[in-house]
Design a protein around this nucleic acid. Structure first.
Lengths: 100, 100
DNA sequence: TTAGACTTGACTTAAAAAGGTCAAATTTAG
DNA sequence: CTAAATTTGACCTTTTTAAGTCAAGTCTAA
């Protein structure tokens, strides 16, 4: 599940049109279409609005939002999965040693 | 292990000075110092040179290089690890459904 | 078949990131 | 101590990315 897919799912579950959701987010509907296809990224602030409009947990949306950015970064890499593992270790190590 | 740490390790294992390695890479030694501390990123092409200079597998260096970029992207995120998991799923799913 | 919904491609502009340099300050080894 | 090695901060220019818009084209249902 990607962020775009989730947004489309939420929107359709409320029988809302792209035009209507786009208006609430104050963006054009062409842009929202691309967002739903993960061709463009929303601003992070928009996640707050979406969370409220659909009463859906913000943390979930944020994870999807970050994941999309990671995916964009590594999608053409043959060693994408391996790099993810390495990054995971770095994060775990970093957390354990962070000098606040 | 980060890319910077690995480069420093390789360099020192050959008793090479920053100045010497920097010259081979055609960059300044101030810049190399930052690279070894992961404060700046090398160009990807530089990995080829490093691989040859130290006879160290390029794929390993590339994984570290990508991992560093992922780390930069998520290091301040509370849900970094979760997002990584989500991205991993997206990659696996993407690979299975890629329309070459 | 035609209106409304959606998708797509081309384009824009400001902001940020890439990829450094250089000199001053600091650290380390002898 | 002191000289070489390293680190750091400030700065710079060029390239990319972010975050859209808009109009034309395509789909879909009635």
């Amino acid at each position: 599940m990607t962020l775009g897919q989730k947004i489309k799912e939420l929107r359709e579950s409320k029988g809302m049109l792209q035009r209507q959701l786009a208006a609430k987010l104050e963006i054009g509907d062409g842009f929202l279409s691309k967002v739903e296809h993960d061709q463009k990224a929303l601003k992070r602030e928009h996640l707050n609005s979406i969370s409220k409009i659909f009463d859906y947990p913000l943390e979930e949306l944020e994870s999807l939002w970050i994941a999309t950015r990671i995916y964009e970064l590594v999608k053409d890499e043959q060693s994408a999965l391996n790099a993810l593992k390495v990054a995971e270790e770095q994060i775990k190590y970093g957390k354990a040693h962070a000098k606040v």
